[in-house]
């Protein structure tokens, strides 16, 4: 299962490489690459966040094995997205990039979302999990929620007029977050029972 997921997660990158090679990325290739890497960052982050709710609904608990990979690939595409911007959009003009981050809210939240994902990617190993302790690690990795919310906001704020697509992503994210509430409540109730005993 892991191998299949790994290969599947590489397909979007492979598609860009192949289309780029064939010169079939359209009139504005940089825009296509920016869009595609951004989209897949969100899709993979959404998938990582969907694993717990889906596990509880379906009882398919092995899914948790895929969560780390989804999160890491989200960070991977996120960094490609950032690199496209820094390199092909601004050509390492750090002054312009700094101004953009300060002046353009959609870039501010986009960068913030990515900054939040970096410590999560860095502490994804078993060793870090042990070092931080399960509870500490879980607490840190709750940063995935604000990262996703900021990513959704980044998308909503950048479109010129047609909000359809960003709202689809925001809607699914809202659904994922809301679906966690009963799970969290149940967990809390269970813990409370244990304490009382």
């Amino acid at each position: 299962m892991k191998v299949v997921a790994f290969v599947a997660a590489l397909l979007p990158l492979l598609r860009l490489v192949v289309l780029g090679w064939l010169d079939e990325l359209g009139a504005n290739p940089i825009e296509v690459i920016t869009r595609s890497t951004g989209t897949w960052t969100m899709v993979l982050l959404w998938i990582a966040l969907a694993i717990t709710p889906v596990r509880h609904v379906t009882g398919w608990h092995q899914l948790v094995d895929l969560r780390r990979m989804a999160g890491l690939f989200a960070a991977f595409y996120g960094l490609l997205h950032l690199m496209t911007y820094v390199w092909f959009d601004q050509f390492f003009d750090w002054m312009a990039i700094g101004r953009d981050i300060l002046k353009r809210p959609f870039i501010t939240v986009g960068v913030a979302a990515l900054l939040l994902m970096i410590p999560l990617a860095a502490t994804s190993t078993d060793r870090w999990q042990r070092r931080l302790g399960t509870r500490g690690w879980l607490r840190l990795h709750r940063l995935a929620y604000p990262a996703a919310l900021l990513a959704a906001l980044h998308f909503v704020w950048l479109v010129k007029r047609d909000l359809t697509e960003p709202l689809v992503y925001a809607g699914i994210l809202a659904l994922l977050l809301v679906s966690r509430v009963p799970i969290a409540l149940r967990r809390r109730a269970r813990r409370a029972k244990v304490v009382r005993r």
Binding site: L11, P12, R15, L19, E24, L25, G26, A27, V32, S36, T39, W40, V43
Partner: peptide
Amino acid sequence: GGLLGSGVATA
């Protein structure tokens, strides 16, 4: 369309 080509590829 995300995985298979899109309008981009059929210009």
